[in-house]
Write a protein that binds this DNA or RNA. Structure first.
Lengths: 207, 207, 207, 207
DNA sequence: TATGAATGAGCCTTCATTCAT
DNA sequence: GATGAATGAAGGCTCATTCAT
């Protein structure tokens, strides 16, 4: 999780770091504004204000470039979410869940459009080596969270419960953030998701 | 919901209908087996056993072709789901939900690979004109379903509840069907999703 | 040795044959006039009066194109030489040798410039799969020729003698044809080569 | 024939001389090991342990670089051959010829691979300004040699004889060294070439 | 002088689309 | 209508060469 690629406009930043960042930003921007098909290496280079040659100095090929954008985006999202997860250590189950959901919503909002584009166009390539790991990490963390509140949770299988939580919430957050349904405020939606999760976790179970 | 995409002349299925179907099938097949990048119009035409020229007789351009595949796929999924919704008219709330979920799982399973590929590569194009409509139709139907069981449902806002149901279930079904997590049977997962939905709908609400 | 690619302006010649020939000719021409470096696929296509696309309809890649040019050239040369070899069946040894040399000179003259360019630039690629075979065929034929005149030939090892003949003559012919030394007529040179070969073959051997 | 390609300042070998040598060596090495296509200026510079910038300090462009390699190689070969020619001053004609052939074989063997690569890729460039001169020098020397043995030589035109000798032997040596034919030892081949040359020079001439 | 990041023309190749047959 | 050869814009990528440090 060594995230060095993220924003950092601090004192020293090598020339090349700046160039790499510019290229990554340009790629993301074109991806968002014009889609994958328009993200030619020439277009990216031009928008980044560098030559194609320079682009290839830092990325061996186009796939690596898109991959890097995806990695950076994934790292940013994970960072936000894990921070929330850490902060929730001593909270109520509901508060913890709410915090996690809010963080995830926030993470998706950071770069909602990029997120949308990135979720597409990956099939061909390596289908994001990191994505699977992220999911696993989050499932584990949620299991830890649920374990800490074992007495309140009626669900027998915590691993299953974590899986359910994660993917139900993800589906909802996606719908809320990316489709921006009218008539439902983000705040309200977040709360409602928390309610659903809580209901699921604490509902009386059929013996 | 059985749609005819093109001129229809002969009783059962005209010559051209057959050609269109062949082209659509070929496209879907290549999409599934070799991915979007391999789905060139020439490749599609060859696999369909027609000339590129013929392909362009029925589809103005490649986008229209992929669009048609997506539309057909969407229609098939909708057909399955709506049938379940209709069948569930007189069922228990839980049975109705379970039936709906099962149907959705089934719909996704029908052509899981195509579904996956299709979820990618849309950004550029029209982002599925129909998809939004489908979602709306389903939300409406779910509202109808919930209304019929108004007394059991504690959720105050049925439109919101429908939204929640739809997207939470969708996220889960996607995860279950497309990622095929080990250790969780499809049947068990379906049931668990039903439980979550029920728990959400019938949980005691804070006043 | 099925040479179908050679000049033939006879009655029926399919459209594509003409196109292939045009491309091959264009390639040869550029190779001769401007060298390997200038023989870009685009340049070749333009000179051939077709589009790059068409070029790639007939040749999978640039290497295949150059390879085809080389093959065609080789076939043409072999045809000339083998014809001479066949014609020499009943001739004197000296006449046979002279005929062979004349034919080889002629073969080299056919497209001396192309020959020169082609002798270069092959290292990278397959180094002409055919070239080795050609050499072998010629050595064999020469052995046959020498055998027919066994009594006149003092050289003990005919295979070695064939090797010597072939490569000595080749070196000389190259020098004569490609460097066009002043002061030595082609005719005279050819005769002198014949003399050298005869001298070698019939010289008294140390026991 | 020891040539200094560049500014010379320090007594034995200046700093830059060493750099030039390193660059030349690197070029030759890459040419031999990976072929012309791989010999990019960047690759050469890297292997030489200098920067591209430095490379361009000593060679105005890539052609000049390859040219220099060719020149150096040619000089080395010439040195070997001329030494043999000088040593043969008082020898028998046969011994002189044999010595010359052996030297030439040796010269070709010194860097057979480089020789092979260098024989390619010249068309575009200056076609070796020196090569022609070398040939001329050698022809002259051979004429001198033959003159010294005028009584043994039946060939009337010594210039022509020298031409014949040079190019026949060259063709043979190339075949022997570069193609390494199986079944013929280098020693045996050298001897046979000597025999052919002698046979040619001393054969009875038709009046 | 040495360095090596930056440049960008140009190369090979693909593929959506057209149109003469 | 059907065919498929032909088209050529555009894309990914390389590499000789330059120039600010």
């Amino acid at each position: 999780m060594t995230t060095q690629l993220s924003p950092r406009r601090a004192p020293r930043q090598s020339r090349s770091q700046a160039t790499v960042t510019a290229i990554l930003d340009a790629t993301a921007h074109i991806l968002i504004e014009h889609g994958f098909a328009a993200a030619s290496t020439n277009a990216v280079a031009e928008r980044a204000g560098v030559s194609v040659g320079s682009l290839y100095q830092y990325f061996p090929n186009k796939d690596a470039l898109v991959s890097a954008v995806r990695t950076r985006h994934g790292e940013q999202m994970m960072a936000v979410i894990l921070r929330a997860l850490t902060k929730a250590i001593d909270a109520t189950l509901l508060d913890a869940l709410t915090g996690l959901i809010e963080a995830t919503v926030e993470a998706h909002r950071v770069d909602a459009d990029l997120h949308r584009v990135l979720e597409q166009q990956l099939g061909d390539m390596d289908m994001d080596e990191h994505h699977g790991e992220y999911v696993r990490v989050m499932e584990d963390r949620i299991v830890v969270l649920l374990t800490r509140h074992r007495d309140e949770v009626t669900a027998p299988d915590l691993k299953l419960a974590a899986f359910m939580l994660l993917h139900a919430a993800h589906g909802l957050i996606h719908a809320v953030v990316l489709q921006r349904p009218k008539g439902i405020s983000l705040k309200h939606a977040t709360q409602e998701i928390g309610d659903m999760m809580t209901a699921y976790l604490t509902a009386p179970r059929r013996t």
